[in-house]
Amino acid sequence: MLIVKYLSLLVMLGVLLGSMALVMLSATPSIAADPTPTAVTFVPLPEPTEALVSESDLADIDLRALPILPDFSANAAFLRSLYLEGKRRALNDRAFSKVGDCMTASPNFLVPFGTGAYTLAEYSALQDVIARFSAPLRENFNAFTHPSLAAASGFNAASVLDATWSDPALCGFDESPLACEYRHVQPAFALIMFGTNDLKSLTPSQFDFYLRRVLVETVN
């Protein structure tokens, strides 16, 4: 049986865009609905600059102290602005894009949710989420089964931005895998997972810069 917490990654790691943002967040216990929502304006993320990240900076991070599902309430206004901006752009609120390396592209990751090969057991409340993202995207694919153009074995946070690695049959000459994927799918959500290959090929400063570039291209 698949680990059902993979669905929670759509909230925990996804960059939330579009009109499903508040619906997904409402399923997270740490999020309380704002009874008096205020008007918000979408502010694009600033372009990143490469800053020096030292090994000592990383040594002070205790991964065990980080929550499995972060509390997004402090960012409620920003998330609401993403929700409204996604509606303005008419992004597909039944679609998400997978962005990352071999683990993200693996047929064992999320795909069985799109084929019906799963058992929810005590997590039956997630069935509505699965149904929401099981709508057809193209051909016989849905969001779970769609083979992402921005997820492949060997990818790191830099290569997904490099047109060298784009599928020439589906992408423009100067179009990166990330831009190509977003153009084809027009997703309201993105699930972004990098790190393994970055350890071998990028410095901490480079990883910080390129991952921020991925976020800027995703959100803006």
Results as ranks from 00 to 15, higher is better:
residue 157 A to L: 02
residue 24 M to T: 00
residue 35 P to K: 07
residue 43 V to L: 12
residue 33 A to P: 13
residue 104 T to Y: 01
residue 17 L to K: 11
residue 96 F to V: 01
residue 3 I to S: 13
residue 155 F to M: 03
residue 139 E to S: 15
residue 36 T to L: 14
residue 144 F to S: 12
residue 167 D to Q: 02
residue 140 N to T: 14
residue 45 L to I: 09
residue 195 G to A: 13
residue 50 E to V: 05
residue 167 D to I: 04
residue 89 R to M: 08
residue 158 A to W: 00
residue 20 M to T: 11
residue 187 P to Q: 06
residue 18 G to T: 09
residue 179 A to K: 05
residue 136 P to D: 14
residue 34 D to G: 00
residue 92 N to V: 06
residue 7 L to R: 10
residue 40 V to R: 14
residue 144 F to D: 11
residue 152 A to N: 07
residue 160 V to M: 02
residue 109 F to N: 03
residue 171 C to P: 10
residue 108 N to W: 12
residue 74 A to I: 11
residue 87 K to Q: 13
residue 103 M to D: 05
residue 57 D to S: 11
residue 148 S to A: 08
residue 78 F to S: 13
residue 56 S to K: 10
residue 206 Q to V: 05
residue 30 S to P: 02
residue 64 R to P: 10
residue 174 D to M: 09
residue 194 F to N: 11
residue 87 K to T: 06
residue 157 A to E: 02
residue 53 V to Q: 04
residue 18 G to M: 09
residue 49 T to C: 02
residue 194 F to V: 14
residue 9 L to G: 06
residue 101 D to T: 07
residue 49 T to P: 00
residue 27 A to W: 09
residue 211 L to T: 04
residue 106 S to Y: 13
residue 46 P to H: 07
residue 32 A to T: 08
residue 103 M to F: 12
residue 7 L to W: 13
residue 76 A to T: 08
residue 104 T to D: 01
residue 52 L to Y: 03
residue 90 A to L: 12
residue 47 E to V: 05
residue 28 T to H: 05
residue 13 L to S: 11
residue 171 C to T: 09
residue 142 N to T: 10
residue 176 S to W: 05
residue 59 A to I: 02
residue 59 A to P: 00
residue 47 E to R: 09
residue 195 G to D: 12
residue 128 D to Y: 14
residue 34 D to K: 00
residue 31 I to K: 05
residue 5 K to F: 13
residue 166 S to I: 03
residue 4 V to Y: 05
residue 220 N to E: 09
residue 1 M to T: 15
residue 139 E to W: 13
residue 130 I to N: 10
residue 10 L to N: 12
residue 21 A to L: 02
residue 190 A to E: 04
residue 181 E to A: 10
residue 122 E to R: 06
residue 10 L to D: 06
residue 91 L to C: 07
residue 213 R to P: 03
residue 76 A to K: 07
